[in-house]
Design a protein around this nucleic acid. Sequence first.
DNA 1: CTGTTAGCGCCTTCAT
DNA 2: ATGAAGGCGCTAACAG
Lengths: 295, 295
Amino acid sequence: MEKVARDLGYTPSAVAQSLRSRRTYTIMIVVPDITNAFWPVFARSVQDVVGPDGYHAMFGNTDARLAEEEAFLDEARSRRVDGVVFIGFRLPASRLVGLAESGVAVVNLGETPPGSRVDSARFDDQAAAAQATKYLLERYGPSVALIYGDEEAPAGRERRLGFEEACRAQGTEPDATRIVKTAFTREGGVTGMRRLLDLPQPPRAVLCANDMIALGAIDVAKERGLRVPKDIAIVGHDDIDAATIVTPQLTTTRTDARLLGEQAAGLLLSRMKGEVDGEGRHIVIPHQLVVRESA
Amino acid sequence: MEKVARDLGYTPSAVAQSLRSRRTYTIMIVVPDITNAFWPVFARSVQDVVGPDGYHAMFGNTDARLAEEEAFLDEARSRRVDGVVFIGFRLPASRLVGLAESGVAVVNLGETPPGSRVDSARFDDQAAAAQATKYLLERYGPSVALIYGDEEAPAGRERRLGFEEACRAQGTEPDATRIVKTAFTREGGVTGMRRLLDLPQPPRAVLCANDMIALGAIDVAKERGLRVPKDIAIVGHDDIDAATIVTPQLTTTRTDARLLGEQAAGLLLSRMKGEVDGEGRHIVIPHQLVVRESA
DNA sequence: CTGTTAGCGCCTTCAT
DNA sequence: ATGAAGGCGCTAACAG
């Protein structure tokens, strides 16, 4: 009977099943841009963890825009997904509380208000930036600069804070003209580095808030005939594949996207399976300064 | 009334709507590995095209394995998705016919049997490889080699065919010892290049079946103190971001992932919206040899 | 124009 | 053991 049906090409409707069972076996992963090398690795690793339990993933690209962040959260609600992995650049994490309250598993990739049912997994970007800055200060002296992107984004703000924290810890008040805000892209790195090198007293070392910026900074150094790190040292953040492809290979902070994904997915899964039901759990993933050639 | 409901936090259930309307506004994108730089760009561009019409995307990573390719197709059936974008490495394209027949919009990223309702968008990999090989032959003489990956994969086979076609067209019978099969990865490029350089008569120029292989090949050339392209010329395929990050910048065939995505999504969308209903349409996307520094 | 009803496909419950 | 019924939440069709 069942066999006959299956031979006839019958497949049970997951949507009817979902309506009845109130489970969709669907999660939604909302990231700024799947095109940025970090996120595919992250997404893949989340999928690899939840897949064996029958969960499949939908993706949202917000481009770090508020409207998109809200739209995907609404979509997640509407579609009755079982879980959401979210990283908000504009939307306060508090906006996730309601979703979580309504029974969907929510993992936020960033600082998260305690006391809710929202889980979180994140890196301590401020500490990472502080560590990298300290490394630069000790090795190349007080003439350090920062190129970073979007101030609104937690990643941007935290890394700037870490940079300033490390400067102050060494007794150097961070110099505003040496903190350049552009964009988290290679092009942003080009712009930022040009601005720094055009200063009356260019810096000896530059912390870039991510590897793409660092790549652009290296482009400019080469273009001006400067040797890295001999004339100017450059540090990135993320450790994307390109970090070992570029010459000189990039010294950078490794934030392991795969590990973040596994941890986030673990939190999500345990909640979706009902193994956990209380208050949010919060994981900080360790980072690591990888010293290569550029500083 | 409706306003009150919405203020109370009510959101219509998309799953009930789907059951009723028989439309899920969901598409499934099945690729080998979202972690390979080409696919995020492709996926993003598909999403950007279908998103405005309310469609959202699920992703499947097959790792080019038959079981996964089948599993995701089954999942697509079961979930009653409105459309599928599929690239099969193991599964014959004919397996898509049934799905398409049952009313879901299907776009195959590869050669596709005519006479079905399956649409397709693809590059002509054979022609691309032939063109790149011809360039190498004209510029560096008959001593050319090929490093490629998976023979089962259409991309692998077609590129090898193109290489051989171009050799024969120049009157050189392709030399089997100079056709190395490894894997479509940087590591595969390392392995392949070592094998070629250890030959009694190493080649003067190497066609790599993708950029990752070419990156590995460049690693080996550097490690052995060979200058690229002075001592050995290297050409890639894909034009990933890393192609302009590596030194020397890679000469490669650009296959525009964004364009492929837009075209595929266009085909998909027109069918999902019922604007088209007949036999499959087939698009071949133009490629382009981008000459940079490595050859 | 507002209100009721039936059924999308499934699964759990209850009855036979 | 097999079978029938009800309802998950929605919307199209129909009635008042």
